[in-house]
Design a protein around this nucleic acid. Structure first.
Lengths: 193, 193
DNA sequence: CAAAAACTCTAGCGGTGCTAGATTTGCATG
DNA sequence: CATGCAAATCTAGCACCGCTAGAGTTTTTG
């Protein structure tokens, strides 16, 4: 019965190949350049093969996004654990902004496109929960009496807003760092109410 | 020479018609349903007529977005002026969130799509500057010694992040109001640093 | 070694944004 | 009022998109 095992393994490898090719193509030329034809050519299979692995183009993007969540969680964790508790939020924020800046296409798949993943529920992918957890741990020292989960969501949303508006040309990029500092000051300062 | 004047007027009316039809179609069925064919059919002209008014579909979306900025600025102004100074930021925030919730397609054109407009410069459209100005006036009482423009940008980004993540399914919608309250608490509280 | 099952490909559907060139319309002139 | 011209508009089509039916090939099974 090892023959079936080999087939499954090869199939899994090919699926991984598709995901990687899609990510690389998106990171090189943006998601609008990732067409099923170009992707099929790149992995050296015909288009229908893609559809034997994924329901459609959106599902491929979702798979890429899932990889991204794992990467992001790892980088946030590294940033948080290499900083003292008081400075953890600054370190995590910087890591988050750097990730979005360094891998914009991946960030888009994760947070801008419609990927149809469960997010803020127990059914959310572990990597996603891990990333959120890192953020929450960095926020915790400044939460005061507030709901930690909710406050983390607010902080995350603020970071996300800064990142996306800056990259969309809505905010001038030069002051990006200063804006994050300003945000940090509001979250690390004394708690009102 | 009034004949040319009439032609220009008719042409301007038709352009307005196109913009309105695009907005209505987007608000009814989303931007992915706004194709040049459907839009042309709706205004009862052929496709190439659209291209005699706009460079392409993106330019049509930009025109729709411009209308949106005027609407948003007006609503923010109404919210701000109908509240006492201390409560202005809460009122403006609520108005902003309500606008995004009530007119999601319009909000997308303004802040999510690539519309190629000058944003944070003196060349930005007046309506855009007006909207930002409303936000800034509401932020001013809580700015302390910080750069008002920069702080307003941060607050705006936070609002934008909350709004987009919620609508994209990244944040559960039920707690939307509580998140905005939490954000407000961080911006209206005592100033650190 | 043949039948069956699994797999992959070619070819095509209906759609997209956009445009070249034919055609119609409406104005200025004789 | 007729006619020639210019401007406005339409028809038809290009190259591309996501996706899939059915033909063809390869591999496994009896």
């Amino acid at each position: 019965m090892s023959i079936q095992g080999r087939k499954e393994r090869e199939r899994a490898e090919r699926e991984k190949l598709i995901i990687t090719a899609a990510r690389e193509l998106a990171e090189a030329e943006g998601w609008e350049a990732v067409t099923t034809r170009r992707l099929a050519e790149r992995v050296e299979y015909s288009q229908p093969v893609l559809y034997s692995h994924f329901k459609g183009k959106d599902a491929i993007m979702t798979a890429v996004a899932l990889e991204g969540f794992a990467d992001l969680a790892e980088e946030l964790r590294a940033a948080r654990t290499s900083a003292y508790a008081a400075g953890a939020l600054a370190a995590v924020s910087a890591a988050y902004a750097a990730f979005a800046d360094r891998r914009p296409a991946l960030y888009d798949a994760m947070f801008r496109q419609n990927v149809d993943l469960p997010f803020a529920t127990p059914q959310a992918p572990p990597a996603l929960q891990a990333g959120f957890g890192e953020l929450a741990e960095a926020v915790r020292p400044h939460a005061g009496g507030a709901d930690l989960g909710l406050l983390t969501e607010v902080f995350w949303a603020a970071l996300h807003g800064l990142v996306t508006l800056t990259r969309g040309g809505r905010l001038p990029g030069g002051e990006h760092g200063r804006r994050i500092e300003l945000l940090l000051a509001r979250f690390t300062g004394p708690i009102s109410s």
